[in-house]
Design a protein around this nucleic acid. Structure first.
Length: 511
DNA sequence: CGCGGAATGT
DNA sequence: ACATTCCGCG
């Protein structure tokens, strides 16, 4: 089908490696492993090459700004082989994520959206906890099915090359929580879930894990095999982007890592190694995984929670994504392919009504001189997966990013903006208000608590509503509608509490 | 710009 | 399910 486009996959290479399934779909995707938009967005966010186009917004964890909508759309279109893609369409797709709670719009800021990483992160926590001291938050966001796709294909494990680094180990022993029993239901069960919220889930998850662990036997469930390994990786060095929920590590990586996701759990030693302000994401070529630092997480979760409330969202929600990684390429197109292939695999949609507005192929733009190759020398360990949108792989021409990147010394420009930011990795933005107590010392704990604490949830009523209302309606939430609410934001960003979570959503915006 | 319904495609 | 495409509305 789609002729050119579908090729993809990394054929060569070693063979089977390929990313773990969950990397692609985590459960969300239908059967196909097509890349999803949010994966793609994360992918772009993780790469510095695209900083000019899309970047994390500082100030809010998980918030990002599409600096060049057209370009992002173009890239997305390329990836999906939909040359007619444009921001309008892309944004429609993003809007669909609102209900899924994967994303939400940051009001007042153009082209700015925010990821709801709540669930996403969670998977990690369980591990962390493992007894570490009590550091584990009890309330972490649930990770229900998240782990579902933890298994990795046996792939070559990367073979020799990828030896195991001291830093990482495989955690086979870790429970991967293959999938929870409730899984099947889980997803749809949201209703019931609503109540328990994260905490419960989380706990459940842990339990499961444990049990699973014991059982480890393999296939406990017919569905998938539990071969899970979560190698941990050593922390990345520095991250250029403190604001990102996952900092990107500059290092090219040890290639090795292969696709393995790392478990965030690593933070077993949280502060010790790294302090990554945010979950570190390794951009390795191929995959990137993130690890979360408990502290960071805390902040993130907190902010997230606040956002959730502010936006009237329910915290549940995030697709499970064990180690976030980025999917490798989907279409084989070379970056410049556009140029080369002028063929559009996809004829202009004639439109349902046959309106043909043919806009023409603007992107056909030939030339795209790519310019540089990013980092050529990396261990080639991973053949395939790397390319991603940018296709870092072939230095030759690719780099689809004709636009600004190269020409203008990418680093500088973006850098500048970040320069300030750069200051230090320290914690992510400190959330000012943290109503909860003690922000200072103990990292986890309290914060999340509030989030999930079913007990007092401010939003309880809301939830109820949710439960009652038909899903469709239930999902409908408006970030905007609140008229007066936002204005208040000035004073307290989050006030979820007493009176209710109402408003204040865009507090951040004022900044 | 941004939203979301509706139809359509994969 | 997850987009993609159109489109009217604010």
């Amino acid at each position: 089908m789609k002729a050119g486009c579908s090729i993809v996959e990394k054929p060569e290479g070693g063979g089977g490696y390929q990313f773990p399934d969950w990397a692609y779909k985590t459960e969300s995707s239908p059967g196909s492993r097509q890349i999803q938009l949010w994966h793609f967005i994360l992918e772009l966010l993780q790469k510095e090459e695209f900083r000019h186009v899309i970047a994390w917004q500082q100030g809010e964890y998980g918030e990002f700004v599409i600096k060049d909508p057209d370009e992002v759309a173009r890239l997305w279109g390329r990836r999906k082989c939909k040359p007619q893609m444009n921001y309008d369409k892309l944004s429609r797709a993003l809007r669909y994520y609102y209900n899924k709670r994967i994303l939400h719009k940051t009001k007042g800021k153009r082209f700015t959206y925010k990821f709801n990483f709540n669930k996403l992160v969670m998977p990690n926590y369980p591990f962390i906890n493992i007894r570490s001291n009590g550091v584990v938050p009890q309330s972490a966001p649930p990770v229900p099915t998240a782990s579902s796709r933890f298994h990795f294909p046996p792939l070559e494990t990367h073979s020799p090359t990828s030896d195991v680094q001291p830093g990482r180990f495989s955690a086979s022993s870790l429970p991967a929580s293959g999938q929870e029993p409730s899984n099947g239901t889980d997803r749809k069960v949201e209703l019931s879930e609503l109540e328990d919220g994260p905490a419960a889930d989380w706990r459940r998850g842990v339990d499961l894990l444990s049990s699973r662990n014991a059982v480890s036997g393999g296939l406990g469930h017919p569905k998938r095999k539990p071969d899970i390994m979560l190698p941990l990786f050593t922390r990345p060095g520095i991250y250029p982007d403190p604001h990102s929920p996952f900092a990107v590590s500059p290092i090219p990586s040890r290639g090795g890592v292969l696709n393995v996701p790392i478990s965030p759990a690593l933070s077993l030693t949280p502060t010790i190694f790294s302090y990554s302000p945010s979950p570190g994401l390794s951009p390795f070529t191929s995959s990137s995984c993130f690890s979360f630092n408990p502290e960071e997480m805390k902040h993130y979760l907190h902010s997230q929670a606040c956002s959730v409330f502010n936006y009237h969202l329910s915290p549940r929600t995030f697709p499970r994504y064990p180690g976030l990684m980025v999917p490798p390429l989907q279409c084989q197109m070379h970056p410049e392919e556009s140029a080369q292939f002028s063929i559009k695999l996809q004829p202009p949609p004639v439109g349902r009504k046959n309106r043909e507005r043919v806009e023409s192929s603007e992107e056909a733009a030939p030339v795209t001189v790519p310019t540089l190759a990013p980092v050529p020398p990396r261990i080639k360990v991973e053949p395939a997966p790397e390319k991603d949108p940018e296709s870092l792989r072939q230095p030759a021409r690719e780099k689809e990013e004709p636009s600004q990147d190269e020409g203008t010394v990418p680093s500088r420009t973006t850098e500048e903006e970040k320069g300030t930011i750069f200051v230090r990795p320290a914690a992510p933005p400190v959330w000012p208000s943290v109503p909860i107590s003690t922000p200072g010392e103990e990292p986890l704990e309290v914060t999340e608590d509030s989030e999930d604490r079913p007990g007092k949830e401010p939003s309880a009523p809301e939830k109820k509503e949710d439960a009652v209302m038909p899903p469709k309606l239930r999902l409908k939430r408006r970030w905007n509608d609140d008229p007066g609410a936002r204005e208040l934001s000035k004073n307290g960003k989050f006030l979820w509490n007493g009176s209710g979570p109402r408003g204040l959503a865009t507090a951040a915006a004022d900044a």
